[in-house]
């Protein structure tokens, strides 16, 4: 079907023992490839603690939620710790509703998340 394609820009950054995935752009089913590639790269570099930094204005739909949950499932299998930061109050509510917060704590800032993961 016709679709407006978009891609994510994801930068990897190390802060001590924490690898930050700085995700630019909306998170939808189209994010699967970019997010999967960034996660694989971080894992290959030996990341044991990951922070998903999402833009506050990002549009996250049900397809994006499924992509995030697939990443979380992989982190669980690899025994990696994950946290999330940057999301709006609305998406905090949504992440809580779907159960994402059972597997990744949500923090108000990058600093607080890194502190908690370290």
């Amino acid at each position: 079907m016709a679709m407006q394609q978009h891609t994510n820009e994801i930068h990897l950054e190390a802060q001590g023992a924490v690898t930050i995935l700085d995700i630019r752009g909306d998170i939808t089913a189209f994010s699967e490839s970019a997010l999967g590639d960034a996660y694989r790269k971080a894992s290959e570099q030996g990341a044991g603690k990951l922070l998903l930094k999402i833009e506050k204005e990002a549009y996250i739909n049900s397809g994006g939620i499924a992509v995030l949950i697939q990443i979380l499932a992989q982190t669980r299998r690899k025994d990696q710790r994950v946290a999330i930061t940057g999301i709006s109050e609305h998406f905090k509510k949504i992440f809580n509703m779907v159960g994402i917060t059972k597997f990744a704590d949500v923090f108000e800032s990058t600093e607080l998340a890194v502190q908690a993961l370290t």
């Binding site: 939620i65 499932a73 509703m97």
Partner: peptide, 24 residues
């Protein structure tokens, strides 16, 4: 409704979140 525990254990595919969000 999707069950995240089952999805995390690979016993369920991650679908149905759209209707879940609408219902909730």
């Amino acid at each position: 409704d999707p069950d995240i525990e089952r999805i995390m254990d690979d016993r369920e595919t991650p679908v149905g979140f759209g209707l879940f969000l609408i219902r909730n």
